[in-house]
Amino acid sequence: MSTPTPLEDRLSRVKAPGEPVVVFERVFLAFGDNVILKDVSFQLLSGSTKIFLGASGAGKSTILKLILGLLKPQAGKIWVNGARTDQLSERDLMKVRDDLGMVFQEGALFDSLTVRENVGYKLYEESDTPLEEVHARVREVLGWVELDEHIDKMPSQLSGGQRRRVAIARAMTFSPRIILYDEPTTGLDPITSITIDDEIIKLRDIEGVSSIVVTHQLRDAFWVAEKMAVRRQDGQVEIVPASPEKLAQTQFVMLRDGDVAFEGTASDLRASTDPYLQLFQS
């Protein structure tokens, strides 16, 4: 086995709860004359959740792409797990992405692969994990999202909600410590949306995953912020109203015209007197 590089060392260090895992410092991004992010700064702490709200085109999804290194900012600094990602090469970014799961809008499942191949993609293609272990892990995560009976289906045979849950399963297969959700419930009916929200809550509270959720569905945002998952004595996971400590771990960030217009908890957002925030909530 080769000696870990300084970057791998930094990335692999276990972050204590409350330690920053994603940091944006005065990030600026524009496409030509179209300024997307003007001066965005925030921190995601280990084990907590940040929910990004904002109108369409406010730059919410762009933030996720910047965290993943799919886009590079024109100014400002971005740290992920202690590594300055805005300066890393594509090769080094692959190491950063080993600890980042991403659930894309509409799922972005590979339509030529089965559910099993989609979910286990990273382990099948990009790791030396024995096949038996990969199969077992795929079954385990599909069981987690309650889709194990669909393992040999193609994505086109699944409903919209099932596709999103497969996308969540794919993002968690390799046990990343950070998961990014891009509009995970957009276009879904309220009941299906709740099942997706519950998966996000379970991953946060049971698996200890730090997460960033981008959405403009306020109902889902408040559900994720104001609920928590607990494991009962019989091993079953239950969704219950969040404790005050848990409420404080979920922060809302409102983006407006390329800037952060608001940052605070669910109750701060509800209590805000800002006309734009009130309009957004109405």
Partner: peptide
């Protein structure tokens, strides 16, 4: 092209695969 417009190329990169190589 279909993979590009449905974010599958980005998904590949996010999963640690270089789309050019794959």
């Amino acid at each position: 092209g279909s993979m590009a417009v449905t974010d599958q190329l980005n998904a590949l990169r996010a999963l640690g695969t270089d789309p050019v190589r794959k």
